[in-house]
């Protein structure tokens, strides 16, 4: 026993990482199914039904189809970047999910005390991947899309980080597990409802959620894909699994965004009623958020590009600055007396 003792953390790390990869893969595949089913229900139709019971094997069939197709690199395209871009979409999402505390004990083997920063550092690579993909495709629609993605993400990174700073001021730590631990055991202890720290806390959650949608290029902010304007935007020239990986990357990024929202605002694995805290609460909250993302997509038309930027610069950034200031004031208020 003692012989293996020094290797145990490494084994644990390996298992955790493999588990994360499996979790992302499974989710990326099955969130597509969830989306299609959800879209179907919103539109009064059953969605995929043919492959397996309730179409449950549909992602498998789709994956097989995509894998059997040739990955065509258009003539004149930058082949290296063109192939690299899909990998760059999905890899950061994997990295981010490795830092998320799923439950009190089910978390990154090393207690990362800068987890929050790491998530944002890796989360931004997604943008660069789409930009590279669009740039390397040598397609006019793809280049327009690439240009859009950059300005969109730059615009939305700011309010998102401002909101996160607000949270940071309230929690005082960047360790994601510690942030979750602070928010318990009842739902009024969640950051979302800590209105005595900052009366605008629910608003900050809404801003975070909107920014998350914009960062992951989800409808109504799907400027990068915008299929009725840019055909398929940055993904126009991708075929086969190249497109498939982009597609999975989109869902992996949604997963990251929703996990982060759960951790930062909804108390992570904490139970809302003080009973049985654990991983199930985390997943319940996570998938409720994912459902909301799907719900929003199938309800609204796409925003116009300047509308999107105006929303960020004229509404979200001022409001998030106000919440930031307000939190600072509330925190320093006791010093006055």
């Amino acid at each position: 026993m003692s012989f293996f003792e020094p290797y145990l953390p490494a084994v644990r790390l390996l298992i955790f990482l493999v588990g994360t990869v499996a979790f992302v893969g499974l989710n990326a595949a099955y969130l597509v199914w969830v989306e299609r089913k959800g879209a179907g229900r919103f539109q009064r139709r059953p969605g995929p039904m043919e492959v397996g019971p309730q179409g449950l094997l549909q992602p498998l069939a789709d994956g097989l189809k995509l894998m059997s197709k040739q990955l065509i690199v258009p003539p004149g395209a930058d082949a290296t970047l063109f192939r690299l871009a899909p990998a760059m979409v999905i890899a950061p999402a994997l990295m981010c999910l490795a830092t998320i505390p799923y439950s009190e004990s089910l978390l990154a083997p090393r207690n990362l005390n800068i987890g929050l920063i790491m998530v944002f550092a890796f989360g931004s690579i997604n943008v660069m991947a789409i930009m590279l993909g669009g740039w390397a495709s040598r397609n006019k629609y793809a280049i327009i899309s690439a240009a859009r993605v950059v300005s969109q993400n730059v615009a939305y990174e700011i309010p998102m980080l401002l909101v996160v700073i607000t949270i940071l001021m309230v929690t005082g730590t960047m360790n994601l597990n510690d942030i979750v631990k602070q928010q318990g055991p009842y739902f009024w202890d969640w950051n979302l409802f800590r209105v005595w720290e900052n009366p605008l806390m629910p608003v900050t959650f809404v801003i975070f959620f909107i920014c998350m949608l914009a960062e992951t290029n989800r409808a109504p902010f799907d400027m990068a894909e915008a299929e009725s304007e840019l055909v398929a935007g940055a993904f126009t020239e991708y075929a086969g699994m190249g497109f498939g990986v982009f597609f999975m990357g989109e869902y992996a990024n949604i997963l990251v965004g929703c996990s982060l929202a759960t951790v930062l605002f909804l108390g992570g694995w904490q139970s809302p009623i003080g009973l049985f805290p654990g991983v199930w609460w985390f997943f319940l909250k996570l998938y409720a958020l994912v459902f909301t993302v799907v719900w929003i997509r199938w309800t609204f038309p796409r925003t116009q590009f300047y509308g999107l930027l105006n929303l960020s610069w004229k509404i979200l950034i001022p409001i998030s600055l106000v919440t930031l200031l307000l939190t600072a004031v509330v925190m320093k208020l006791p010093l006055l007396f």
Binding site: G40, R41, Q43, R44, P46, W295, I296, W298, T299
Partner: peptide
């Protein structure tokens, strides 16, 4: 969003 959610719980018509 309320309207589409209401449609979500209605039976399918296809």
């Amino acid at each position: 969003m309320r309207l589409t959610l209401r449609e979500f719980f209605k039976p399918t018509i296809t």
